[in-house]
Nucleic acid binder design. Structure first.
Length: 139
DNA sequence: ATTCTGACTTGTG
DNA sequence: TCACAAGCCAGAA
């Protein structure tokens, strides 16, 4: 085979994967950009997920409002720059039961999506040690 | 090719 | 908790 430079990663494919992951987020739950990125095979690609959301269209019928920005260890928040879009996202989430604190943050402890325990029904007894294999102490 | 920008995240102070 | 810097990735100029 002649010299064939490593072809660039199929961006479109990755976007498709991102949308696929987003569709798995259950109603009333939220996932962070970073979380969606990892599940899509794009570690560190949180910004790419944000772009994918922005590029999404209504025809896709994508639950984009369930993807939020991480604020701290157990909290998330709306990260859309456009104030109108941000308000829409919040409204849509509240409509499906997601509660916002006075500071405008969402408790991941209460509404964070747990991909691993997605179908088994999140019992009240959800193991605290997230699905993270290796993680030093608390981050 | 280089620089800027953003629906990101994490570390510091 | 807030502000700022750095690292990060893809698209636009």
């Amino acid at each position: 085979m002649p010299t064939r430079k490593a072809e660039p990663p199929p961006i479109a494919e990755l976007y498709g994967e991102i949308y696929r992951v987003v569709r798995r987020i259950p109603r009333g739950r939220v996932a962070t950009y970073g979380q969606v990125a990892e599940l899509s095979g794009l570690p560190g690609g949180s910004r790419t997920v944000g772009r994918a959301m922005k590029l999404s269209t209504p025809q896709m019928r994508l639950p984009w409002q369930r993807v939020v920005g991480r604020k701290s260890r157990g909290a998330a928040r709306v990260s859309i720059l456009d104030p109108v879009g941000g308000a829409v996202q919040r409204m849509l989430l509240e409509k499906e039961g997601v509660k916002f604190s006075t500071a405008g943050s969402i408790s991941l402890h209460a509404f964070g999506w747990l991909p691993a325990a997605d179908s088994p029904a999140r019992l009240a007894n959800v193991p605290r040690g997230d699905a993270r294999p290796k993680k030093r102490k608390r981050r």
